[in-house]
Design a protein around this nucleic acid. Sequence first.
RNA 1: GGAGACGUGGCUGAGUGGCCGAAAGCGCUUCUUUGCUAAAGAAGUGAACCUCAAAAGGGUUCCAUGGGUUCGAAUCCCAUCGUCUCCGCCA
Length: 423
Amino acid sequence: MIDIKLLRERPDFVKAAIAHKKFTCDIDAVLALDATRRARITEAETARAEQKAANQEMAALKKGSPEFLEKVQQMKKIAARAKELEAESKAADEAFQAAFLEIPNLPDPSVPVGKGEEDNVVASTWGDADADFPHALPHFDIPWFESRIDFARGVKVTGAGFPFYVGEMARLVRALVNFFLQEAQENSYEEVLPPIVVNAESATATGQLPDKEGQMYVDPNEGLYLIPTAEVPVTNFYRDEILDIDQLPIRRSAYTPCFRREAGSWGAHVRGLNRLHQFDKVELVKWTDAESSMEELEKLREDVERTLQKLELPYRVLRMCTGDIGFPHAKQYDLEVFAAGQRRWLEVSSCSNFSDFQARRAGIRYRGPDGKTVVAHTLNGSGLAVPRVLAAILENNLQADGRVKVPECLQYWMRQEFIGEAK
RNA sequence: GGAGACGUGGCUGAGUGGCCGAAAGCGCUUCUUUGCUAAAGAAGUGAACCUCAAAAGGGUUCCAUGGGUUCGAAUCCCAUCGUCUCCGCCA
């Protein structure tokens, strides 16, 4: 949710700001609904105040006296009218809320204007994607790939997109998770191990509901959703709470499996590890005050970049354009590693500032220096998603002899320098 | 899963139909006194929304959540959720 006051006071500014986002909404209709709603609320509250005042008088009368009985008859009418107006005001409010929820967050002025993917700006690159990777292969073409990451048995046991990681590959995944968590800890993020199913309130607060319901796995018996990202439970940690400004910024990290139905997005470029229904990810989440979130976004991006650098994978940073940032996003960077076998850039992290948009939905506030409550800002970024990082490692580090060199930073957990030895 | 008890403000806890947004205590904030701290005293101390150009002020709502009864509900009824105790089951 954006700030309703801003919408009322500067509707043209809001319209202009979201004009370049890929979401459409009718600002004027929302404003009209807001006006109606406020009129209805005032009516209903006036009627209710009248009723309450009259009720006070009743309390002074003797019960059962003629005056009392007469008053009761009058009161019935007033009560009925108040009830009616209240229902109207509630309906008007719901209509407004529903429409208001459709308004996307305003992009930050620093976000490049653009229509879609093609207009994203490469902000920086690290490493040499043009270097010679003489032995690189798409990871799914490595001869031993299917014996270490077993898609066929995953299909048998669960379905497509749920592979088994076997032996040293399972250990490599675990090594990556450990490494990511350690990096997060070194960057002052406090680790949490959250629930991986959430209720509808949580999914709504972070913006998965109502729009992206089809992307989540649901348990209709309990009304619970498997999380598509740890962002959901972790951000909701402080839902409906008022924080102390001295606590901010709060930094948290969380490892979880993530579940995505990816309905409709199956097709080309999704072979192997490129897109899965279940994958592991370490997520970084921040809560900040209203002033410092942009600065914290840069720090968040730098934190993730350092981790990528330690893995020695070439990557690039994209400044996502207005047409490609998400619904709740004010600003977003995507980090993509270069997978030399496929010769493709794979998104491994998305670092985002939601400004106060998510926090307003989620009721996350803090008490400002003057004692007033202020809506907090929330941010998050992957730090990092495992399968695509794994894919890039397999492709880029493939040796002439068919083995894959384990990055230095993972050897502490792997206790071996190469994987993919002939079995 | 079965039986029972319970869910009130930051916390403890009163309140069983109108005078209750809610006693009292604790905590917290400010002030006074004091060389400092402590102690003592005084005042203040929830949120959301509507109204108001803004502030002040006024108003409405909120006693787990959602319905209902009633002129009137924290208080009565129903459902849901949660907590605790006992039993069963279980990693």
